[in-house]
Design a protein around this nucleic acid. Sequence first.
DNA 1: TAAAATAGCGTACACTTGTAAGCTGAAAGT
DNA 2: ACTTTCAGCTTACAAGTGTACGCTATTTTA
Lengths: 233, 233
Amino acid sequence: MFKLTYIYGVYLLTFRVRINSTSTIKESPLSRQEQKLRTRRAIIEAAFSLLDERRSLSSISLREVARAAGIAPTSFYRHFKDIDELGLTLVDEAGLALRQLMRQARLRIASGGGVISTSVDTFMEFITANNNVFRLLLREHTGTSTAFRAAVLREIQHFNVELTDYTIASTGLPYKIANLQAEAMVKLVFSAGAEALDATDSQKKKVADRVKLQLRFVANGAHHAVKKRQLTK
Amino acid sequence: MFKLTYIYGVYLLTFRVRINSTSTIKESPLSRQEQKLRTRRAIIEAAFSLLDERRSLSSISLREVARAAGIAPTSFYRHFKDIDELGLTLVDEAGLALRQLMRQARLRIASGGGVISTSVDTFMEFITANNNVFRLLLREHTGTSTAFRAAVLREIQHFNVELTDYTIASTGLPYKIANLQAEAMVKLVFSAGAEALDATDSQKKKVADRVKLQLRFVANGAHHAVKKRQLTK
DNA sequence: TAAAATAGCGTACACTTGTAAGCTGAAAGT
DNA sequence: ACTTTCAGCTTACAAGTGTACGCTATTTTA
């Protein structure tokens, strides 16, 4: 339990404590499962916290994550096989957050307001609040790992499908056109998000305004394309 | 000049040769300057060759580049202060290639053919021929180095300016609209390029066709926006 | 209450990395 | 013919990496 170690010319009295111990006075002891889950969470959070603007998944080391999570490097393996497995978990979590974003946008649209404007604003709030989450998606989208790239693409695909369906339902555009429009819009919004990531509030507003106009171009253009086609029939 | 070394249980007779020596029979000796430039080239080419789909600038090591270039690790410093300085050089070279692409597209457009179609086709040929160059730009655009990101952005900005000017000249759109349109188009084309990077020829064609339609949406939408505004005046 | 399972730890090892220091042979300058 | 310059080399070192192995204290199971 207790141990006396000599290091760097100093004697250290070390002893183990449960990490993440509840800070209430009455420490209700955690079950093993619960404790394990907490440590897993700690690892995941630690990893996210390391993913600032100068680090990517491929550049964070297992030891670094372990350090930030407050565990020994080798303990990492009790939770993830690889650093890559952790990476995939992070991408999944990011995807989850993205889907929550979609739901939120849908709710807001239902309660009034322009579709484009509301969606873009919601998106901008998201990347402000979940800075590192969005950065992860953005970076791994063009990153060095095939698996990560595929995982991110899958999440973006959700966006496309959802937006395509919505477009068909609300405008009656034919599938092909609606799909092209949705894809273009998602790309434009993500690009704008990338620009806005490290921007100040006023810059963000400018980016948002610009992309809203661009989305309107796309929407009008798609609408126009269909009308013209119908006329020639 | 000659040296006998013992390593891994084997005696090796090593001796120095000039790398990149001309392979003609009559070896015309290179001037020092020339030789240095060649080595510099070798380093740059080596770095590009390492930038396949699984490596990014931040993940290639000085030693690795040196190895691929056939020089000693420490010799690297005779040419670049840092690995970062090499990185910036690579981005610059990539930017140069991009500008050549623009020129080529302009020439082709002048000699007939649809603007959108010709541009996209030229772009697709570019990323096929200069795979790693485009990959570099794409990756560092969202990469971990502020300096690299800025450098890439500068290059993309060239595209925007050029396309904005062209649009104003050929359609007479007001600056603001033309600029928004150009920006959207560049983003869509780059996104499509990203998709096409690792795609087969037939997939590339599909991507190209899709993005062409999307660009038309944008163009028509922008046009429409102006017409409508003029009517309300 | 005794036995089994396991989350977390410390130690250890073989690698890779960036870069400092100093040498050398050939080219360039005088 | 000499000195100077310098591209490239070898050697060396401290720091960081992933991970194998085995121990331990505590929870879980029997």
